[in-house]
Amino acid sequence: MGCRSTLILKALQGLATMPAMSKQHQTCLVCGERLEEPHVYGDRLYCETHLSQFSDDLAALWQTGLLILLSLAVLVGTIAIANAVAPNPSGPTRLLANALVIGLPSIGWLILITQRLDGEDGAAPSLVSALFVLGSLMAAAVVRPLTNEILALGGRLAATSPANRFVANVLILGMLHAFVLYGIVRYSVWRTTSFSLRVHGVLYASAAGLGYAATQVGLFALERGGLSMLSGGLTLLTRALPFATASLIVGYFLGINRFENQPFYYLPSGVALAGAVCGVLLYAGTELNNIRLNITTDGFSPWPGFVVNVLALTIAFGAVYGLLQRQNTITKARLRLRG
């Protein structure tokens, strides 16, 4: 833990004192080795090894991601069955059920991915875990106090119109969440030797995002003394998915920008896009659930928001996967052309 803390500190210090790259100090972007004849790609300098490696894929990432996405269906089925058996358990049972709903996809993914990372792909399982924890800590120690206590957004959002709620979700909450997810990766692992593949952006951002999401919704459930089985369980997932989606987008942009010099607005655009998507999905996750109120319908259903957010995550997952594959293919093609 001490080493990880040092890493973060150094990374943050490095931000302030980072020297400019110059021809006198030509080093590999990934490993930092001094280069006599550097390879240039996208205005970045690489050693030969890393030039050929950074566009490699990380199949484990997509496989575990897909597995988690598919496991959501199983989880929802289990929730539905549990709801039929005990729709509204009380006390510790509720919290335990909520913890399982939150923990199975997030910690499950973490265990799977750390098991699958073998070291040869450049990523460190320990860093993945560290980012998961960092995301979790940021959510608990910084973001929730900021949004709930200082900005008091919960009560104020409730008291305003849907349009204002949408704007606030996008401009305040979405941007904040996206920035925090971006910051966690950007100011820790982004400039280290362990960020050696484009897909590592998605890997590390996903780790941070899942830790962040699990803690956000975990505390949400804890503050309410545990949520009901079906509505509560689905809502926990619904509220967690926007963070996962935002982390995929942030990870993609960080991954691209890490290995190719991009215009200055590239990363801000990526973060803004992630923030907007996160905000829209947070809004949709709550507002779409407010259905018609009548004598026989109670004005709420946990399904619409959940379905929309699952679809959004799936689309984001597919898009990021597709775009990264495309980028990597192009890169490899260009490198082959160079000989």
Binding site: G154, L157, N169, T235, T286, N290, L293, I295, D298
Partner: peptide
């Protein structure tokens, strides 16, 4: 909606959510 054949009194459930 109150239908013409609605029994009285009617007991309803209202579920509210937080943003």
């Amino acid at each position: 909606t109150i239908f013409s054949d609605q029994e009285s009194p009617a007991d309803i459930l209202v579920e509210m959510s937080q943003p």
